[in-house]
Simulated assay, not measured.
Amino acid sequence: MNPHHHLHESTLISYAAGALPSPLNIVAGVHLEQCPHCRAQLRQAEAIGSVLMEQTQPAPAAAEQRRAQLREAMLAQLAGEGIPSAESMDRQPSRERPEADPDHLPVALHPYFGSSLRNLRWRWIGPGMHCIRAEQMPSLIMLKIAPGKCLPMHSHGRSELTQILRGSYNDALGLFAPGDMADLDEDVEHQPVTAPGVPCICVSALDAPLVFSGWLARKLQRFVKL
């Protein structure tokens, strides 16, 4: 898996600082499991955070020792909040979806959706569209969209993170395939069209409802709650 669309650097900094809302944090973690490029960027963000923490403290007598202490304190804080660091991810065996089990879900999703796509109970929300919400976190959503489906034009109330797990879609930003991350904000308006072949399955997190352009989609929004 070689992702071509990645987390924005501001998202990585927020992730490293533990400042992302929980649903966004989970989807960012899914991408980081599968993307060495973003793990490398996360290491840089963690290093910057460690330096900033050090600069807020009086200059120590043993600078190197204090720097190590601050770094360990920051990593311990991230671990205590359930936020894996790039270092801890790199120490673990590869979590990319095993080829022998294409239905395997990323580890970060197991507490919310289980370990396999086969066990999910999808809910119909429209022609060719199904979803499932995490019981513990309703704004964490998995979507399954039929091949060749054109979604309504929409923008975003605030932030959206969407990780592609299977299938693909095209929009004005390009082709999004398995492993790719759509890191979107209120300035992006797009109309995804799923590719032929297999359904597009993705996991999304929103921190505000979508903003649909068409009147019909706006009418239906209160029923599908996206």
Rank of each mutant, 00 (worst) to 15 (best):
D183Y: 07
Q57R: 15
M129R: 15
Y169D: 01
S204C: 09
H5Q: 08
H130W: 15
R118P: 01
V193M: 13
A195V: 04
R123D: 11
H37C: 09
L109H: 06
S159E: 10
A208L: 05
D171T: 03
V193Q: 13
E33S: 08
L105R: 04
F113I: 01
Q136L: 15
P84V: 02
S116R: 13
R222T: 13
P84S: 01
Q55D: 11
G126C: 11
Q34K: 06
P127K: 12
C202N: 08
M181H: 03
L210M: 12
L12E: 08
L184E: 04
P84N: 04
G114M: 14
F176K: 04
A100Q: 09
G197N: 09
R91D: 02
A79C: 02
S159M: 09
R123M: 12
G80S: 09
R222L: 14
A61G: 11
P93W: 05
M137L: 14
L151C: 09
D171K: 06
M89E: 07
L24M: 14
E54C: 13
I201G: 02
A19Y: 05
F176N: 00
Q65C: 07
I132S: 04
Y169F: 15
A182T: 00
L120V: 12
A16M: 14
S50T: 15
G49R: 14
L216N: 04
L42N: 03
D171I: 05
A73L: 14
R166W: 10
H156W: 02
S94H: 03
I83P: 00
L173C: 03
A40I: 08
D103T: 07
L140R: 08
D183E: 06
Q191G: 01
A100C: 03
